[in-house]
Amino acid sequence: MTINWRRFLLIGIPMIWLLVFFLMPFFIVLKISLSDMATAMPPYTPNYTPEAGIQGMVNLWQAFDLENFIWLLEDNIYWLSYLSSLQIALVSTLFTLLLGYPIAYALARSPEKWRGLLVLMIILPFWTSFLIRVYSWIGILKTEGFLNHFLLWLGVIDTPLAMINTNFAVYIGIVYSYLPFMVLPLYAALEKMDDSLIEAALDLGTTRLGAFWQVTFPLSLPGIVAGCFLVFIPAMGEFVIPDLLGGSETLMIGKTLWGEFFSNRDWPVASAVAIVLLMLLVIPILLFQRQQEKAQEAAS
């Protein structure tokens, strides 16, 4: 019996924490997304209090409606920011992959005694503040910033380019911030690959490039998939990067949600936006989880 009691505690403590602070909040978000806006504090009605009893529950239920979601459908801004988030996340994931693959490949093929240091150097920026890293690009990209100075000095351009407050700046910010997330899973996949597979391909008559496309690339696909998920999913809901680097025309759902909540103080609409974003992400998140579980099983 004592062993079962321990087991109960072991499972129970983290389980209860996650149920209360992770799962339950989602139901609250769902509930509020079905409520109406009110100017009081908290800014939504109805409020359910246990004293109201069963009748209170019924009233509560009757007061719910899909108004906020209809509102989302009717107002173009939400549609556009969903679509634009999707586009920005996809494009920047692709760029991150294109930049990250050669780096991960070079890491995996670097001399063994250097590898630990090089991997550490890839991870190190990830440990320093995200906000600071995004901030550092403002100085580079702004009209009188470093990049424009440099390009003018080179003579490539005559007048400064407008880079800050554009989607281009957002792409750079996402690629820069999430590069380690792409490189690490790719590196893990490439590093464990047996060198003799490439040698076997060469031995059987392929060129180096042929060996890459027929052997290395297909075998690194799990790493590519994991890396793309790890960049795409958080990029979809990104707030800081579009807010600091993007312009007024940069629509991203994270920014819209933030605005609804902090500027418009419309909690029900902010909740409805969150619910829709979550529904859009549920499929990639579930796919990613499946893949992680499979990888764990394969490792054990």
């Binding site: 983290p14 979809m236 998140i285």
Partner: peptide, 27 residues
């Protein structure tokens, strides 16, 4: 459910986590 709750926050957009926790604390 347990493993889902462990892995989901890793990929959950921060705005959603933040908003939902706030609404919990208010509630």
């Amino acid at each position: 459910l347990f493993s889902g709750m462990v892995y989901s926050p890793l990929v959950m957009p921060e705005v959603i986590t933040g908003l939902s926790l706030l609404l919990l604390f208010v509630a």
